[in-house]
C-alpha cells in the first residue's frame, strides 16, 4: 500500500563502500527473507556448457544467462535501517550492496532476447528518447 505523506530516504553515502555482489533472479517464489547458503549450494553447482549456464534448484532445472545493467545505471540492494511504525513516519534504507550485472534463470527454457529481464534493460534508453530534451 502506498502511504500518504511518509517519505523513504535512501542513504546513498554507503554506495561507495558497498560490496559488489553477484545477484541471481530465480523463476520461483521462495518463502524466505534472509541470508542463504548461496555460494555453498547454488553458485558452486553452476555449469557453463557451450555458453549456456545451467543449474538446478530443489530438483528443477534452470537455464540462464548474465545481463548487464544499462549504461549509466547501477543495481542497488537496499536494506531497511528504520522501519516506520506508522503511515506518517519516514523510513530509511541504506545501500547494502551494488551490482552491475545479474544472472537470471529460466525454468527449463533456454534464455533468449525475448525474456522479460533482457527486454526491461532497454527501457532506460527508450525513456531517455521519449522523455529527454529534444535536440535540434
Amino acid at each position: 500500500m502506498s502511504s500518504n505523506s511518509s517519505v523513504t530516504t535512501v542513504q546513498l553515502g554507503s554506495v561507495s563502500q558497498a560490496d559488489e555482489l553477484q545477484v541471481h533472479l530465480l523463476p520461483c517464489e521462495i518463502e524466505h527473507d534472509g541470508p542463504a547458503e548461496v555460494s555453498r549450494y547454488f553458485t558452486a553447482a553452476i555449469k557453463d556448457r557451450k555458453h549456456e549456464l545451467t543449474v538446478s534448484f530443489r530438483g528443477r532445472g534452470f537455464k540462464g544467462q548474465e545481463v548487464i545493467c544499462p549504461q549509466g545505471y547501477t543495481g542497488l540492494v537496499l536494506k531497511q535501517v528504520h522501519k516506520p511504525s506508522s503511515d506518517q513516519e519516514d523510513g530509511v534504507v541504506k545501500v547494502s550492496s551494488v551490482f552491475h550485472n545479474l544472472t537470471y534463470w529460466n525454468l527449463e527454457t533456454p534464455p533468449s532476447s525475448d525474456d522479460g529481464v533482457v527486454m526491461a534493460m532497454g527501457w532506460p534508453e527508450l525513456a531517455e528518447a521519449i522523455h529527454g530534451p529534444i535536440e535540434d
Binding site: 524466505h32 542463504a36 547458503e37 555453498r40 549450494y41 534448484f57 530443489r58 530438483g59 528443477r60
Partner: peptide, 18 residues
Amino acid sequence: LDPVFGYPQFVRFSWSTA
C-alpha cells in the same frame, strides 16, 4: 538438509521421502 536449497545434488529430489 538446507532450509532454502534443500539437498546437495547427490539426492533425488523427486523421491517422495526427499
